[in-house]
Amino acid sequence: MKAFKRALWVYHLNTGSCNGCDIEILAVLTPRYDVERFGIMLVGSPRHADVLLVTGPVVKQMVPRVKRIYEQTPDPKLVVVVGSCGIEGGVFYESYSLAGPVDQIIPVDVYVPGCPPRPEAIIEAVVKAWVKLEKAEQGVR
C-alpha cells in the first residue's frame, strides 16, 4: 500500500442487521481500536463516503434504499459487506422476507465473514478496500 494520500471516509448502512455487526463497527471507532488515527472516519451521508460498510441480509423493504444509497455514493467507491448474513444470508437464509445477500443487489468488493466479525477483521477489510481503491485510482490515471 502506498502512503495514505487522504482520509478514507466510510458510510455504514444497515440493511436488516441484528445490531451485532453495527456495535462492532462503532467499537472500531472508539478509543480501544481508534481507526480515526489512520484517517478512517464514519460519515453521516453516503455522498461524502468512499467506502460503504453494509451489514445485514437485505430485507425486502430495504432494497430500493440500498440501491439508492449505492447510487448516491460518488465514484470511485467500494462496498464492504460485514457479517455472515450479508454474505450468504447467515442464520436468516431461506427466510421469506429476504431479498438475497448484498451482492445480489449491489456489487461487493470485500467480504468480512463472522457473526459478528471481530473489530480487527473489520479494520483489515477497510484497509483492503483502501488498497483496492488506490489501485483503481492509479488505473484511471
Binding site: L13, L26, L42, G44, R65, I69
Partner: peptide
C-alpha cells in the same frame, strides 16, 4: 434523503 441508518443508532 439519506438512507435509514445513522452510526450512533442501530436499526432503521
Amino acid at each position: 434523503p439519506v438512507g435509514p441508518i445513522h452510526p450512533a443508532l442501530k436499526e432503521p
